[in-house]
Design a protein around this nucleic acid. Structure first.
Lengths: 210, 210
DNA sequence: TAATGCATTAAACATTTGATTAAAATATTT
DNA sequence: AAATATTTTAATCAAATGTTTAATGCATTA
């Protein structure tokens, strides 16, 4: 019998999946060749189909995982009934920027694949109207906006601004880097500054003095 | 001799280019098949190569145009030395949201192609460090931040926030629509609200009481 | 050690897809 | 109207690409 999980990252299956994730994130589904994945993983082309049946199947696995990271990883934060609005805003920026620092291509990958193939996501992932509007974050923003006399502002605007200010630097990263002359380290410092700036800006938007 | 431009939009060449723009914007380069373009344009496949030599050549034309819209269409606004900072912020949101309402897929298209193929853009388009940092907008933001005692905030953050809040709703549109239950008309109204909200938020960020 | 089952490889297959060709249709010029 | 040039079409080509197959290697088991 085999020893219990010696180094899981070096199994052929893991190598292929990890290589696929890397190339898919970089190039997208259509531009990725199965031979590119095989080369990146350092394995024979046929092993890809041996372990994963098809390119599409492998992609679906990667996408499900990526989509989960992108969307569901922060749900527990935003749905936590025991934290204040100010706390949620603080922790969101920190956690999400950390996530994106580790997966800088994740946003464009997910969003462009959805744009190219919107029907697929309808059934594949269970996105529904309730997911945001029933969240604790959304309700707390609504309540706060009313308290400060700004109930004419749809709370979605505020949520969207949080997401936009956090995610967009990574979506526009290649252009931003060219446009500012930042190298990878400088970009890293720049977005990390935003961990404190974004909560400040959002609270300012809400006139939240917390 | 031919009459001077009767209806330019109905020449075969225009039909192909318009169809190409539509499909490329939706699917991206790699996922777009020349046969899809031909079908969308209602022409024989061979005509694509007859008029444009190759898929790549056609793509380059579309991309150059799209990239120009996306980046250069607002340069004149941001570089205008005769307008105040407040005026620039006001007009930017209006103009850019109008542009994106007409081309909702433009941001993801441009940004994902750049991510998939960053080397190509190095030489193809002339993006350089000076383009933003030497703009009138950038200088005015810097000056203002100093005036209100916030010179520790990099002016790039503010520019990026303007871009993020304006562009991101379109980048995330498919998800946003699913997540909120908005239809096309509702989405249109929602982003149009932001024409006045975004300038308000940015000015608030800058403590600009203009 | 022989046998068995899983993993890996090289080669080939079938389809897709960008591009070309040669003929036909249409327009333009002489 | 005849000749010429331009545009369009159907068919085909060649390369790329996802997938399969049959043989080989390798470890585990009997």
């Amino acid at each position: 019998m085999k020893n219990e999980e010696p180094e899981k990252d070096y199994t052929t299956e893991k190598k292929i999946k990890e290589a696929a994730r890397k190339i898919f994130h970089q190039k997208g589904y259509a531009a990725t060749k199965t031979r590119d994945i095989a080369e990146e993983a350092g394995i024979n082309l046929a092993l890809l189909n041996y372990y994963f049946r098809s390119k599409r199947n492998l992609f679906d696995l990667v996408m499900a995982e990526s989509f989960g990271q992108f969307f569901f990883s922060i749900r527990s934060i935003l749905n936590d009934e025991s934290t204040t609005l100010g706390q949620k805003i603080d922790v969101f920026a920190k956690v999400y920027i950390n996530l994106l620092n580790d997966n800088p291509n994740l946003p464009i990958f997910v969003l462009s694949e959805i744009q190219a193939n919107p029907e697929w996501f309808q059934k594949a992932l269970g996105l529904n109207k309730k997911m945001i509007s029933s969240s604790a974050l959304f309700r707390q923003i609504q309540e706060h906006l009313k308290k400060v006399g700004k109930e004419h502002i749809n709370a979605f605007h505020v949520v969207l601004n949080m997401l936009a200010m956090t995610i967009f630097p990574f979506v526009g990263r290649p252009v931003l880097v060219k446009l500012t002359g930042m190298d990878d380290a400088a970009f890293h410092d720049f977005v990390n500054e935003r961990k404190t700036f974004i909560p400040m800006w959002i609270k300012n938007m809400l006139q939240l003095t917390d």
